[in-house]
Nucleic acid binder design. Structure first.
Lengths: 215, 215
DNA sequence: TGTACATCAGTGAACGCGCGTTCACTGATGTAC
DNA sequence: TGTACATCAGTGAACGCGCGTTCACTGATGTAC
């Protein structure tokens, strides 16, 4: 019997194959979109027969879920790491853009058009609030002296999504607009909506960030 | 020979069936996503055999293109109509939200995750600039006295996307942030990202709009 | 160290399904004289 | 008003494809004594 926490060779092998499957899965998502994800096609590319992959994933849906969870995990870790090494809101915004451009399909798997019928597992809700917490921390660290808006008073009573975070409504407000504004620019850029308009999206992103910091 | 511009009964019938096909297509897009669009399935729901629809659409792709073009057309018309009856930027923003909520899938067909491999026809580029022009007009009508940002100077040299519109860089800048901010809130809301956070997205949208107007 | 057994990875065949698309054909609708 | 012809809508069969998933099986790898 192996010591607990130690991986047997078989376990190691399993983990490696699973990882390889996922790699091909990402490739497929990037090439043909999330809805084209196919266990058979992946198996073929790995030089295996279709049913073989059912040793590693119970179903296509499980693989899909895994991809989404991994995407969330990756963003949360990237965020936490940045915050851990002292990044402020500007730093987080920069890191977010880098993460998104690195793999646009991964970004869209989280923030893109929802796949009808597919329901995300409760796992990701947890990771999502982890991300939100980092964002809230960064927003709380900024000076804020704005007149209270109707949204602020509304948020004072609807702050359950911020968990235990002690941020005042103005900070919650700021976190929401940071999120939506950065997402606004990023998603239009990644979706190619700026293509043909020859301005530099990076400058628009930077301008939006400046505006948020100067608030 | 029928007079030009007059529809023969057959033409009328064709137009009606095409419209009915599209109706079912939209239903399908809403139910199972754009990538699930299927001529065969539509035919079945209409009580016809699959190949029958090839009298009306040359291919699945043509139907898809038609849907996308119609979506753009619908938004452009809605925008033009609003502007025509005196709507200012706030009015346009209101109209945009209504249009988006009316049919989220139609919104995502335009602004959502791009379908890999699918390339939009040049038609929509035209309609897109039509929309942009309405937006630019509304932005130009607003008072503007902001310090020039780096983005502004960049836009002074990259304004080809604004066509013949005589708006100064600051107005171009504002049009871009109106677009991206409203899209930011709308797309997160429609994608369900605010679900579980019990605040009212309409207030966030309104707050963003206020901020844009007060600039 | 060697043998007997259990575990597990991967295969190939199969099931049922739906897809896009082509094709030869029937039957109804419209047109020309 | 009636007949001859052309046009067009829709059908059913067919082709080739890929999908998810199940199942009985082979062969290799690990485990127990």
């Amino acid at each position: 019997m192996a010591a607990p926490g130690t991986k047997t060779p078989r376990e190691r092998y399993r983990a490696q194959v699973r990882a390889e499957v996922k790699e091909h899965a990402w490739e497929q998502v990037a090439t043909a979109g999330a809805s084209a994800l196919s266990l058979n096609a992946i198996a073929k590319r790995m030089g295996m027969s279709g049913p073989a992959l059912y040793r590693y994933f119970a179903s296509r849906d499980e693989l899909m879920t895994e991809l989404i969870t991994d995407a969330y995990r990756s963003l949360a870790d990237t965020f936490s790491a940045a915050a851990g090494s002292g990044a402020d809101l500007a730093g987080l915004a920069h890191v977010l853009r880098g993460w998104a451009l690195e793999d646009p399909h991964r970004y869209f798997l989280i923030y893109g058009t929802p796949v009808p019928g597919y329901h995300a597992p409760s796992d990701v809700t947890m990771i999502a609030s982890e991300i939100m917490e980092v964002l809230l921390d960064a927003c709380a660290a900024l000076p804020a002296d704005r007149p209270e808006s109707p949204l602020d008073t509304h948020l004072a009573d609807h702050r359950q999504w911020a968990g235990e975070h002690p941020a005042p409504p103005a900070v919650l407000h700021r976190a929401l607009i940071v999120w939506s504004r950065l997402h606004g620019v990023l998603s239009l850029e990644l979706a190619g909506q700026f293509q043909g308009m020859d301005f530099d999206p990076a400058l628009l992103y930077a301008a939006e960030l400046d505006d948020l910091l100067a608030r």
